[in-house]
Design a protein around this nucleic acid. Structure first.
Lengths: 141, 141
DNA sequence: GGAAATAGAAACCATATCGGTTACATTAAC
DNA sequence: GTTAATGTAACCGATATGGTTTCTATTTCC
């Protein structure tokens, strides 16, 4: 995994705060602290996943493709995780029956643990994230 | 994360199966499918964590330092994870109050999701892993 | 129609990580 | 002292990553 997940959540959070007004990759890059090109690489993934829509040209930028209350953070994760497993798996080069059985057990357990992690991400929507940010901004400290 | 977790579980599983007889890094490397040097790098971490004990010289090798029923797979994870977080965190370069609040929210959520993953690993002991392997070996298919 | 603003994408580079190998030192049993 | 084993450092090649540059495509505004 790389930094794409945190960038994606930054994008979704800021897009939600705009309430329909498009936000540019330049502004997203500046607030996140990286370059616009890096940000567009993540924007491309979010588009492919159908989470945002982007307009080119003057006045362009990105907006949420669906209501913020219908987008879970797990969807953001899956949009940017290129089929990568969080925990590494046993390789195929194991020798012997015991090693193979052990590898199968470990792989199943890793999959189960990852599922637990994804369940946590699925329990939070972009709208909830946005509400949290709004409340914290209005009530400093 | 690298492959050290799967190697560590391989080590603990095979050590448990030996019931006190030391196992060499050469045999562990052969059954896992890598080189003995790579394996010893993981063995060093498991030693530092107090999960195995290793003897040099002829007839040497590694044995479990504690009963298999008292070692959880989470301990193995923490022995090999060099303080690394599974999910990446927001960088410190965020600009603006909204970005900082959002980063804090995301970081907290990531920590929570990781905790859910670790809980799954903590629920399994090396002894249970060993029992599973033994039962599967005796009853093929 | 032209200028400006914006996204899209490819290419390249510097850096870090990782697994593998080699080499050598250290330890313990026989 | 020979043999078998761990401990560790050094190096190499492959891969991933983030950053930058450059160019193209699109859209709006004048």
């Amino acid at each position: 995994m790389n930094s794409h997940l945190t960038i994606a959540l930054h994008v979704l959070g800021f897009s939600a705060a705009r309430a329909g007004e498009p936000i540019t990759s330049e502004e997203l890059a500046r607030t996140y602290g990286t370059s616009p090109v890096v940000l567009r690489r993540v924007l491309a993934k979010l588009q492919r996943a159908g989470l945002i829509e982007t307009q080119r040209g003057r006045g362009g930028g990105s907006v949420l493709a669906r209501p913020a209350s219908t987008i879970t953070l797990r969807e953001a994760y899956e949009a940017v995780a290129d089929n990568q497993q969080i925990l590494p798996r046993h390789p195929s080069g194991c020798a012997g029956r015991a090693a193979l059985v052990l590898a199968g057990f470990v792989n199943d357990l890793c999959a189960d643990a990852e599922q637990a992690l994804l369940d946590r991400l699925e329990a939070v929507t972009v709208a909830e994230m946005d509400r949290h940010v709004r409340s914290q901004i209005r009530a400093p400290d």
